[in-house]
Amino acid sequence: MIVVMKVGTPDIEIERIGKEFTERGLTPEKIVGKHKVVMGLVGETAGLDPLQIQEVSPWIEDVLRVEQPFKRASLTFRHGEYSEVIVSTPAGPVAIGKNHPVAVVAGPCSVENETMIVETARRVKAAGAQFLRGGAFKPRTSPYAFQGHGESALGLLAAAKEATGLGIITEVMDAADLEIIAEVADVIQVGARNMQNFSMLKKVGAQDKPVLLKRGMAATIDEWLMAAEYILAAGNPNVILCERGIRTFDGHYTRNCLDLSVLPVLRSLTHLPIMIDPSHGTGKSEYVPSMAMAAIAAGTDSLMIEVHPNPAKAMSDGPQSLTPDRFDETMQQLAVIGQTVGRWPKVAALA
């Protein structure tokens, strides 16, 4: 249930109303918008009469029900205002959201050695990326495939971070590793295979680093948003949704089916920022630039692109990785689309 306050409502009245709702067994969450303050009520609201709620104060303008099963993730919960996730990086804060330039995340699937990760970080930063991705702990279909270097790879990511000032995004595979990952990562990634690992989602939601939630390989949009709801309900409001392709009947020509239709669909359902991963979405490097351009045109807030200095020798996901030179070219192409729709950072604009 959403309680919309009138413009100019005194803070003391908002505080009083919040206490009254708390006494009724509800959890009020104040959301400060550009023009109004909205109070989201979480709890047993099904039996509440909106008219009775409106009588609590003359400063209440409207009372609305959130019909979707995902409450905090719902666009209605924020009264139609889109949220932003501010990520602290060594180079300064980076905002990800509908009203900001497209943020670019780039780097290899897996951290292989220090020279490789540091040099890749330098190249993607020079091309305009704000974040470095790299797997320390890797989920693999085969138990015999490279699983990542684990904790030692976190030290290599820290070295790349210190050398470049890029923010770090890396995946948590086990909640037991969350603390050591959070020491290095600026954004904690929950991968597609763990999207419905509910115990992990609760623990990720209980810590304060922003969370990147990838869509499961066969997850519906409702299931994806309900997974985000677990993180939000645990107390962490900083969630970014990442579309990375879903499994369909045709896996011959592409690795997955990159569902760009989620962009307009999610815009109508949720306030959360959206990222598109065309590398996993297609599985083939030659398709990545066109899908990345399409994603910007369709309204993505962020892109995740895999880059490796020698894809043919990559320890994981080489076929979908761009070389640094190809990434440079791609960023110039993306800048054209990004500038056209008014979503490209000035620092990465064409000369």
Rank of each mutant, 00 (worst) to 15 (best):
P324G: 04
S302V: 05
H100V: 06
G134H: 04
V118L: 06
C109L: 13
D317E: 12
I337F: 11
V102E: 02
L51I: 13
P139H: 03
M116T: 15
S302L: 06
A227S: 15
L132M: 12
T300K: 00
L322P: 10
L322H: 00
G128V: 06
G92Q: 12
A153G: 07
G97P: 04
A126L: 13
G134I: 12
M5I: 12
R215P: 05
M304K: 02
T115M: 00
N238Q: 14
R24L: 15
V105F: 13
K125G: 02
V187D: 03
S74L: 07
P90F: 13
G97E: 07
V66A: 06
S57P: 09
M173G: 12
A73S: 12
M1W: 08
A129P: 11
S88Y: 01
A126W: 11
I53G: 05
V184S: 02
A145E: 12
S142T: 13
G43M: 01
G251Q: 10
A206R: 03
A227D: 03
T248G: 11
A121L: 02
L212S: 07
R123M: 03
I274P: 04
K203M: 10
P101V: 10
E13R: 09
Q207A: 07
Q332V: 08
G47F: 01
L272H: 04
L263G: 01
G283C: 11
M1I: 07
L225W: 09
L212V: 03
G47E: 13
L350F: 09
K34F: 09
Q196L: 10
V102I: 11
L232V: 04
T45G: 01
M291S: 12
M331I: 14
E67R: 15
G155R: 15
P50Y: 09
L132W: 09
V111E: 03
W344P: 00
C242Y: 00
P278D: 06
G47R: 00
M315T: 15
Y287L: 13
R24S: 08
V94A: 03
G80N: 07
V32R: 15
K161G: 02
E286Q: 13
D208Y: 00
Y287V: 01
P237Q: 10
P324M: 10
R140V: 02
Y253T: 14
V63K: 02
G191W: 05
M173L: 14
H271L: 09
L263C: 03
E243G: 06
